[in-house]
């Protein structure tokens, strides 16, 4: 009888330990980071894409499927960025998985109004999907994640809502600090490799005047490169920001011709060793840009 009681006590303890953590898989490390902040010790979060990898192109691998097979909650970026998540989710065969599209309710930019086809390059019909780079959208992402966590783990819903409240106040305080640090960037013109930065630029007052890619997802061409150099010279653009997963060959040659400098701007958590969470992502981006501006 004593053994039975002991076994029941051990089972009860286990259900409140790591054994019953909510397993969350996110498409990108940014969503994973916010889920980790909201979920705290109640969740175990992993990301499919790594921070230094282009989130548009992720190879669908069986090892990802088995991660999702064990998960309770999947966080998608949505807006056409992580279309590779669908075959991973399907391959997981997980019928109990709750899927949250974190783009629900975000302030969307660059939503095409006319016909969208491949002649425009890799244009997303639902708008530019790099929305996590505006801290205001971070709040919306967090709210979506809270709803997902409450659905899969109602017992801890209040704890998730409390974490969300702390996240809001923390992000607002940090946003004030970032705005002050980024004050010198307001009105600055930059060129970027891919059109990843409209949300960040809007949040911190930057003006992105051109792209290394002639059209989204299209590799640079000689004629476009020449035009871009002329544009940069004409406008006095001195900074080229490039994501860590693109080749620096063309940006370096453009920078040399236009008298500018190339800086690596990681658009995701883990894109540089010092970026370990969603807050440090903005710390690093603003530090890199303000240093380059000096």
């Amino acid at each position: 009888m004593n053994r039975l009681i002991k076994a029941m006590i051990i089972c009860a303890l286990l259900t409140h330990s790591g054994w019953t953590k909510v397993k969350v898989v996110a498409s990108t490390p940014d969503l994973a980071s916010i889920a980790g902040i909201i979920g705290g010790s109640e969740v175990e979060v992993i990301s499919i894409a790594k921070g230094a990898v282009n989130p548009h192109y992720v190879e669908v691998l069986p090892s990802y499927m088995i991660k999702v097979a064990r998960a309770n909650l999947y966080l998608k970026v949505g807006m056409g960025l992580d279309q590779w998540a669908d075959p991973i989710i399907d391959g997981s065969r997980n019928s109990k998985l709750t899927i949250v599209d974190c783009s629900q309710g975000v302030n969307r930019l660059q939503v095409p109004t006319g016909k969208v086809d491949a002649s425009l390059g890799d244009v997303h019909p639902q708008g530019n999907p790099h929305y996590w780079l505006d801290p205001a959208n971070g709040l919306v992402i967090a709210a979506n994640i809270v709803e997902g966590l409450c659905k899969v783990d109602p017992a801890n819903c209040q704890a998730y809502r409390d974490s969300y409240e702390r996240f809001i106040s923390d992000l607002k305080i940090r946003f004030g600090i970032w705005e002050k640090r980024a004050a010198t960037l307001r009105g600055s013109q930059i060129v970027t490799f891919h059109d990843s930065w409209p949300y960040f630029a809007q949040a911190f007052g930057l003006e992105v005047v051109g792209f290394i890619e002639p059209k989204p997802g299209i590799e640079p061409t000689p004629s476009h490169t020449r035009e871009l150099i002329e544009l940069m010279k004409g406008r006095g653009v001195k900074i080229i920001g490039m994501e860590p997963y693109f080749s620096n060959r063309v940006p370096n040659s453009i920078a040399a011709a236009a008298g500018a400098k190339v800086i690596v701007l990681p658009p995701s958590v883990g894109g540089a060793p010092e970026i370990k969470d969603y807050f440090e992502l903005f710390d690093t981006l603003i530090a890199k840009l303000t240093t380059a501006k000096e």
Partner: peptide
Amino acid sequence: SLIPVGSSA
């Protein structure tokens, strides 16, 4: 079917 074996499938 896909069966997890550590980090392998």
